[in-house]
Design a protein around this nucleic acid. Structure first.
Length: 569
RNA sequence: GCACCAGUAGCUUAGCUGGAUAGAGCACUCGGCUACGAACCGAGAGGUCGGGGAUUCGAAUUCCUCCUGGUGCACCA
């Protein structure tokens, strides 16, 4: 599609001794459209050119030729303001959306690039709580957006299916299996066992040692331990899958930590050969003190592996298997140091440089309760299925109030309830902590998922009232030059740009914000303009075309966040 | 103690790699369903952008320092 920013940058570039890209970066969008559509601030040139910003602006203005794209140039206090041809913009945007439909905004920028996205990664035999939900929603939307931009994406659920905690689970299972109804209610009952064995470990150091031994035995292939572990894993995965199905979340790989347990010898050898492995208190470590990263344990004193080692093995395996350009780890910021250490040590694994450069920790803020941090052991977690059920229930209740005659109430309530929860998880900058409050998550008014859905349903409703959508070639774009229409057009035009920023920053909240803005803009348009108009078919056609475009972009944008649009609400 | 992250309206927040009058939503007050859906829209009130320095034409944004909160710092993941 036409790139007005570039066109303007080119016009300026010919007059200045500056790089085109540099100028493009300087160009900004004025705070309100009365001032112009794009602006070039001349202040920063004042020093080098030894002229006042006003003078520079005036001289530039003299030189700039107006054409079919740029129709007016204005000077306001050191800014050179450009007015673009809105008619052309309107035509370009609406024709493009009409042509590409749900692929509008997609591009080939990721072509021939492979990107791995590791996300969700819950711990087996523990409840899937709202912290994992945030992770899952963020990761899943990044997954979808990268794909939309042409990347070859591999979604990895790096299951927490290994480690001393399983030594503990096995110990608890061995002792009290018969006291719990595991088959019927696996996660809850296993959690009870986990809490109980943890308490016992606290009281009795010997039990803790037994648990560590169990894990060592599990790694060494002990029959009983492996059998119990497999059972825990199967039961948990079945439970998790229900949640993933409900959320529409998919993975290409379910290789958890355990998968890498037999691949750590090579890591240890490599590190040893590079001479960076040290013995310390019986354990094998890499000392990263000189980089300010402390020390990283590679092998515990009892010979069993640890988190970091398995992550290193995973990097090596993934580099070989996928030769990735990027590997994103969607993991909470608690593990910032861990990833810094692992990425540092990965430099000694003889990986291709591009893989090394592509390692990136997408760090997000923690979900906490008003009372503080959640804890499985203390039973203070909020489980995802409880939250989702409650959200759907709440949506159903509202439907009963507002629209009792509606069809497929169950289905629509599900989309709305889930839409609210999902949106809530991606609407803010991901690094910020989130305090969980039921009333906030289950709020359906204002800047929420249901708001976007509501505006979408409105567009849908308009389009259904019109029997046939007008041919784009018969639209008179002159009829969409009012302020409200133009705001919608400008926002639609920005869609692809927003998606590019999302992947550049790994920040899906930008898309969430965008959809709110688009909805608000359309809402203003809707309130100011009569769309269906039997007396003026030209106006109707133009406004319907705009409505159709908003309908497409809202639906696709929401889909990229993992939110489905209801038909009615 | 050291390191990293965050601090914007009563609450939740946006602010695009320094730019024009700091934008929203919730809650509050007032107004709007005989145009296409009121889960909506409009208006009002609410800000010394944590404090203090510095850099410069210009700082919520960059740097320094202090304060507050969070997180991490060896056999958990």
């Amino acid at each position: 599609m036409i790139d007005f920013k570039k066109i303007i940058a080119e016009k300026i570039a010919t007059k200045l001794d500056l790089d085109l890209e540099e100028i493009k970066q300087y160009i900004e969008i004025p705070p309100n459209t009365d001032l112009g559509d794009y602006a070039f601030p001349c202040f920063r040139l004042a020093k080098t050119l030894k002229k006042s910003p006003q003078m520079i602006a005036e001289e530039l203005k003299e030189e700039i030729q107006l054409d079919e794209n740029v129709i007016k140039v204005d000077i306001v206090g050191g800014y050179l303001n450009f007015f673009i041809n809105k008619l052309k913009l309107t035509k370009e945007v609406l024709e493009e959306i009409n042509k590409k439909e749900e692929n509008y905004g997609s591009n080939k920028s990721g072509e021939n690039k492979t990107i791995l996205v590791e996300y969700s990664s819950p711990n087996i035999a523990k409840p899937f709580h709202i912290g994992h939900l945030r992770n899952t929603v963020i990761g899943s939307s990044l997954y979808k957006i990268y794909k939309f931009l042409g990347y070859n994406v591999v979604g990895i659920n790096h299951l927490g299916d290994y480690g001393t905690q399983f030594g503990k689970m096995i110990e608890g299972y061995k002792r009290w299996e018969k006291e719990y109804n595991i088959e019927e209610n696996p996660i809850d009952e296993l959690t009870n066992i986990y809490v109980r064995i943890n308490n016992l470990c606290k009281e009795d150091e010997n039990v803790l040692e037994l648990c560590r031994e169990n894990f060592k035995k599990l790694e060494d292939g002990d029959e009983y331990c492996v059998e119990v572990w497999n059972k825990l894993k199967d039961l948990s995965l079945k439970e998790f899958q229900k949640t993933y199905d409900l959320l529409g979340v998919k993975f290409d790989s379910l290789k958890g930590e355990a998968f890498y347990s037999d691949k750590i010898d090579e890591i240890v050898e490599k590190l040893d050969k590079k001479g960076i492995l040290k013995d310390s208190e019986g354990a094998k470590i890499v000392d990263l003190e000189d980089k300010g990263l402390g020390v990283c344990i590679i092998k515990k004193s009892n010979g069993s592996t640890i988190y970091a080692t398995r992550d290193l093995a995973a990097i090596l395996y993934r580099a070989r298997t996928y030769n990735f350009d990027k590997c994103l780890y969607v993991v909470a910021y608690e593990q910032n140091l861990h990833f810094k250490q692992v990425f540092e040590i990965a430099k000694f694994l003889d990986l291709p440089q591009k893989c090394l450069d592509g390692l990136e920790h997408v760090s997000y803020g923690m979900v906490r309760l008003v009372t503080g941090k959640m804890s499985t052991r203390e039973g203070t977690v909020i489980k995802v299925n409880e939250l989702l059920d409650e959200a759907i229930e709440r949506a159903k209740k509202i439907i009963e109030e507002k629209n009792p005659e509606m069809e497929n109430k169950e289905e629509e309530a599900k989309k709305i309830g889930l839409g609210a929860v999902i949106f809530n998880n991606v609407s803010n900058t991901i690094i910020k902590d989130q305090v969980f409050e039921w009333d906030t998550v289950l709020n359906f008014n204002g800047e929420t998922g249901p708001y976007i859905q509501y505006i979408f349903v409105r567009t849908k409703s308009v389009l259904e009232k019109i029997n046939n959508i007008p041919d784009i070639n018969n639209i008179n774009f002159e009829l969409l030059q009012d302020k409200e229409s133009q705001k919608v057009i400008a926002t639609l035009y920005n869609f692809e740009n927003v998606l590019m920023q999302v992947v550049q920053k790994n920040e899906p909240s930008l898309l969430a914000r965008y959809l709110i803005t688009l909805s608000q803009n359309y809402s203003n348009f809707y309130n100011e303009n009569k769309i269906i108009d039997d007396d003026d078919k030209d106006i109707q056609n133009a406004r319907v075309a705009l409505t159709k475009a908003v309908n497409i972009v809202l639906k696709q944008g929401a889909k990229l966040l993992g939110i489905e649009m209801p038909n009615k609400m």
